[in-house]
Amino acid sequence: MTTTKIQSASTVSPAPTGTGSRGTKVLGGFALVFLAIAVVYGLFISPPDAQLGNTIRIIYMHVPTVMAAYLAFIITAVSSGMYLWKRTEFWDLLGSSAAEIGVLFFAVTIVDGALWGKVTWGVFWRWEPRLTTSAVLLIMYIGYLAVRAIPADPRTRATRCAIIGIVAIVNVPIVHKAVDWWRGLHQGKTVLGTIDPEMGGTQLFAMYSSLIAGLLVCVWLLIHRFRAGFLAERASDLGLDQALEERRLESSPATGEDA
């Protein structure tokens, strides 16, 4: 209780009004530069792949989005554990912000994976281990966000989310193993989602620049989402303080008259 009071009191005077800062502007600038490089090399300069043809250009987008999503989910898991240990608002906000960003990148991953599948396999969806694992994982984290959206006391909500964050990440290798064996009986692995070691110079450059761009965008979004979440908490504290103040003002003349 005291910590929230101290925080709300300190933010009342020099309250931050936005989520941007010098650091995020620099980070965003780098992200834009790498995105531009990735677009130019990925779409125009690099040659089509010997085996995958032009569909390799989808993979330049697919790998960064899936990497960014996994990074976000790992941050959620670590933050969940840290929250249960330290019980601070920082870890709660970091975990839930990362989960949101992770769901966003994962949805994009599944869409671009399905598009790649349509071109390569002729169908949008195949029960391929990685695609299937991703679908299950996406729904698990949508569940996390659903719990997050339920209004509750901050500590209660944070504990619920932390538990789901831990339970969900532990399930990832088990789901993957199960789906791998399940499909392993019928078909071999596909190359979707791996960096081919025999990739040529400009292709490799396109891949790495898009990977860096993806991770930078992920971190940039995460910082903004975290700050937006922090401001939302302060705003609700402020609303509560105001409501308390109003009730006090209502009651103070009344007690004098009625008593």
């Binding site: 569940g143 339920i150 789901i164 199960a178 399940w182």
Partner: peptide, 23 residues
Amino acid sequence: RLRSRETLLPLLLLPLLAPVLIA
């Protein structure tokens, strides 16, 4: 203790149990 527990529990639990169903 959630008011929306009837809809929330299957959403949370069933994806978690996907590997159990497969295995």
